[in-house]
């Protein structure tokens, strides 16, 4: 079991404070949902966990199994087992999906001192693509270039299945997906569910949580986790909406 611990995290972007003291503990084997209205710091938290250079941590600590995560660069965090499924995956022109996936996998295998078997990799990649209902031609396309929104999200999940991280953050992966794509994406995330995998599902809507049942639900509001609980919290949000959070937890 691995443990990701966030304590008293404060952060800003371009001098604007976004997070005002976030505490959160996640273990592998658990699925956490992070909900809240837009603009209150959900994506910021995901980006800070991954090490986005634009965000500045001004206070607090993040540790991964006791190791100081904030001291690691982005590459090291990935190699340590962190994964971010991007809300808006960037296009990398001229780099094929196949070349990218193979090299990424190779890097992660090297961390464990394992040499890649290319034939086995290709076989696995084909199976994963079939599982995610992706056309086999994707392997020859340039990474995310000209992909539809749904295709980009599937590509994120394909990378998730390929790299098999310990902790994955899903930054509004469900946004903009039709119900079929949402089911496929959820199926991908659920496949990894095990004692060796932990996830933070960041979402604005409760819909995705019908397909991926969370163990814990947190509500991030005005840069703080204002309440945590189980799926009853999702139902409360569904019935009462975010106004309820606003009334109950607003700090002026």
């Amino acid at each position: 079991m691995k443990k990701l611990t966030i304590q008293g995290l404060k952060a800003e972007i371009d001098g604007k404070a976004i997070l005002h003291g976030v505490d959160l503990e996640m273990k592998t084997g658990e699925i956490h949902a992070l909900m809240g209205p837009n603009g209150h710091g959900k994506s910021t938290l995901a980006n800070i966990l991954m090490g986005h250079p634009k965000y500045k941590v001004t206070a607090g600590t993040i540790t991964l199994d006791g190791e100081d995560l904030l001291a690691m660069d982005v590459t090291e965090r990935s190699k340590a087992g962190l994964f971010l499924a991007f809300q808006y995956p960037v296009e990398i022109p001229g780099v094929t999906v196949g070349k990218f996936l193979k090299r990424a996998k190779e890097i992660h295998m090297a961390v464990d001192g394992v040499k890649m078997n290319v034939t086995a990799f290709i076989k696995q990649a084909r199976e994963d693509m079939k599982f995610l209902e992706m056309d086999a031609n994707f392997i020859n396309r340039y990474l995310n270039e000209g992909f539809s929104g749904g295709e980009k999200k599937r590509m994120e999940i394909l990378q998730l299945l390929t790299l098999q991280p310990s902790f994955a953050m899903f930054d509004e992966t469900d946004s903009g997906l039709d119900i079929d794509a949402l089911k496929v994406v959820s199926k991908g995330i659920n496949r990894l569910r095990s004692e060796a995998f932990g996830a933070l599902i960041i979402t604005h809507y409760q819909r995705v949580l019908n397909y991926i049942e969370p163990d814990q639900v947190h509500i991030l509001y005005q840069g703080r986790i204002v309440t945590s609980g189980g799926t009853e919290l999702v139902r409360a949000l569904e019935e009462k909406g975010y106004d309820w959070v606003k009334e109950k937890y607003s700090v002026q």
């Binding site: 991954m50 982005v74 965090r77 990398i92 990218f100 790299l163």
Partner: peptide, 8 residues
């Protein structure tokens, strides 16, 4: 950032 987040 995208590529480094995948280990590059």
């Amino acid at each position: 950032f995208y590529l480094t987040s995948r280990g590059f």
